[in-house]
Structure formats: structure tokens, C-alpha cells
Computed example of a mutant assay.
Amino acid sequence: MFVLILITSVGSGAAEEQRFSRQHISYSSRDKAPYGSFVAHRLLQDQFEVKPQTVTKSFAATYRKNADMRKANNAYIIVAGRLYITPDDANAMYHYTSAGNRLYLVLEETDSLLESTFNFATKYLTDSLAQPEQFADTSTQSFSNRHLAPDTFFQARGIPMNNALTVADTAVTTILGTNDRHEPNFFRINVGNGQLYVLLNPMTWTNNFLLENNNIKSFETQMAYLPQFPQNLYWDEYYKQLRSRQEGDFSDWQVLMKHPSLRWALWLAVLLLLLYVLFEGKRRQRLIPPKPVLHNSSLDFAETLGRLYFLHHNNKNLAQKMTQHLLEYIRNNYYMNTSQLNDEFVTLLSRKSGQPREVVGNMISQVHAIRLAPAVSDADLQYFYNSIYQFYIKTN
């Protein structure tokens, strides 16, 4: 059933005439085109019943951050064209396999750092990679397995890859498969408690190859060498994107620094940001608002209160309120006792306020008259208002 689903989703592209340039080869797990690896990625889930974890960082960065990779019984799969690794990657791969894990590399070409780290060498036949712009040749893979017939091989239309192993330590290296020239192109190297697997024919992991004939058996034969129940299964999507060796971990910053125009744009942006912080980020002196001219709030209160009571025509009550406010003003501004409004009070208030004694005495006399009068006429109220109004203005 699973194979039928794959044929439905992928086989339409594989059934067409195989006329593709090398730019169509991606080996990506998301690519359903003939030379993607969508089928192989889905087959891994059925083969191991463990969902592959997609890795998008370098091996060294992933190994450094993932504690599970430093344990045993893990499988890490890289399917790519040319492999480009750093010294840190090579060192991490060696420690990873030595700890009891499997590193499975399916490559067109290996890397010199990888070969020196694991002590082997390969040869690259240029006619297997330098194909014309369009190709329709046959890719072949045989396996050296005693459980298979000696003449068992798998074929499909694609790029013939005849790269092969040339130098290896026979004490730790086992040949597992050959190309159509009967040269070893699939081998295993024992490293500590783990193994390194190298297959120099990634065509066998493409959709086109696996959906032809009974070629899924080829995939099952390869996966039979890995543990049936790995703790973790990793699928690399990082190295297939590289076209040259990276200095350290590949990142967006390296892309910016690699191209001169982007590098100058980055530095210009940094410079402009620094200039903004220098000239605009510092604290500016705020404008000092003008100090408003002081005015006599007592006068405003008296006017407002006067309008209120005048509307109700309650002259007696209004005059008493004006008297209370006047005495409150005297207490708060001249600190005088207003309980006894006698001659001494008039003399002291005149001295403190700077007003003539006659004016102050007249105002205090009106206060006494209002207190004793049963009613206050409009004329008396107006005269009293003018007296305290002049007092407020001249003492402000």
C-alpha cells in the first residue's frame, strides 16, 4: 500500500522521459521530482518505525548541542553530491561513531578531511559526473551480500556513478557493494564501538531509482546493516546545500560577509546606527516653560462666589461669605488672629499690608456693620465688595 501511494505521488514525474540537467538533482527529502529523495525518506519511517529528525545545521554544531548524539545506538544519514566538512565536523564524526553510533554517508564524492580522519581513499571518474546537459544513462548498484545471489544487481535510468574505494585498512573495512565496473563503492569501516558506512552512488536513493522495477529491495538491503531499533534517526539537509567548504558553522552572517556588496551594506548600516545613537540617542535639554505671572486667587474666588450668590439675590449670605473669605485671607497671608477685630487689629493689619489705616479701618467697620445688620441692601453689598476688592488688588 505504501509503495502504491508513493507511485501515485512521485511516479508521474519518474515515468516521463529522463531528460534532466544536473540542476534537477537535489537529494532533498521534500523533493518529489525524479532526483529528489522523498521516497527514501518515507521508506526510512517504515524501515525503522522511527521518524527521522531533519538536521539543518552542521554536524559539529548538532553534535555539540544534542546530548543524545553523544550516546550510543543512533543513526545519522547524509545524502549529498560533494561532501564539504570542516575539521570540527570531522572530529565530531569520529567521536560520534566511536561512541557506538552509525554514520551513513551516501555521496557522489567524499571529502579529504573525512578520508584522512577515517583512513581511506577513493577515486573519482570524471566521466561519471561530467555528463552532457541532458542524460538518460543507466545507474547500476550491486551488493556483496552472501544472502543475495552473486549476480544480483539493481538498475535504473540516471547518472552512472563509477567512483570507487582505492585505499582502506582491511582490518576494519568491509566491502558491501560494487559499481557496474565491479569496483567497491559501498563499504563499512569499524570505528571504536560504531561504524562508518559510505556509498558512492546516491542515485540509489533517488525517487526515480527506487520506483523502477524492484529497486526498493536495494534500499532494504542497505538499511539491513543498520540497527533495527535505533534510539534516534537523523536525516541531514545541510550538506547537500553546500557548494564549497565553510569556515566554521554556516550561517546567514557568512552569506552577508561572503559577498562584497552585502558586506559593505552591512557595515554601512552599522555605521549609520552608531551615528544615530551618538547624535540622537543622547539626552537633550528640555525647553524651560515660561513661569506664569502670579495672580490673586482670592480675587478670583471672590468674583466667582459673588456671581453665584448675586444670582440668588441673597445679599446677607453673600456678604457673610465674603467676610469669611477676607478673614481667611488675612490669617493665611499675614498670620494674624481675627477673633477680635479692634483698633489694635486695624493698626497691625495696616502695618503688615501697607495700606492706610483709614482704608483698613473703614473695611473692618463694614464687616462689623454687616454682622449686626438684619439685611444687606444692594448698595451696601456693592460698597463692601469694592472695599475688599481694592484691598485684594493693592496687597497682592
Rank of each mutant, 00 (worst) to 15 (best):
I189R: 07
N215K: 08
P260V: 11
N332I: 00
S353H: 09
A375D: 11
F120M: 05
A149P: 03
E109P: 00
N207C: 05
Q324D: 14
Y385A: 13
T8V: 07
K217W: 02
N179G: 07
D169N: 15
T138W: 08
W253P: 01
A14P: 00
N193E: 14
S128M: 00
G36V: 01
N119Q: 12
W205F: 14
H182W: 01
K258Q: 14
D378I: 00
V106D: 06
Y385P: 06
R70W: 01
R181I: 01
M69S: 06
V367A: 03
T140W: 06
D88P: 03
D169S: 12
Y309E: 13
R331N: 11
T347A: 12
Y84M: 06
Q53C: 03
T97W: 02
M257K: 10
R307I: 09
S58L: 01
Y225F: 10
Y238H: 15
N317K: 14
G11H: 02
N91C: 03
K316R: 11
Q228M: 11
S28R: 05
H95N: 12
T62S: 07
H41Q: 07
E237R: 02
E237F: 01
L196T: 04
E133A: 12
S28D: 10
I393Y: 04
D137Y: 10
Q23V: 04
R263G: 10
E358D: 10
E183M: 11
D137P: 00
Q23R: 09
Q366T: 10
W235Y: 14
P132G: 12
F310L: 14
F135V: 11
N232W: 08
K321D: 13
N91D: 14
Q155N: 13
S9E: 11
A99R: 13
Q324F: 11
A171H: 13
T8W: 05
S58P: 03
H259Y: 13
Y239K: 00
L44G: 01
G177I: 02
F209G: 04
Q366V: 02
R157S: 12
M161L: 15
M322S: 06
A375G: 06
H147L: 11
A40W: 00
Q141M: 14
K316W: 01
L273E: 03
L272P: 02
L226S: 07
R357Q: 04
V50Y: 02
H147M: 07
P150W: 00
R42T: 09
G158H: 08
V198M: 11
I370H: 05
A164E: 12
L196Y: 05
S12P: 00
R245I: 10
Y385F: 14
R64P: 00
L308A: 13
T138F: 08
E344D: 14
K71Y: 03
T140Y: 09
G100E: 08
G306R: 15
S377I: 05
L43M: 13
Y96G: 04
R157V: 13
A130F: 05
S261K: 13
A269M: 13
S9T: 09
T166M: 08
I25M: 06
Y197F: 15
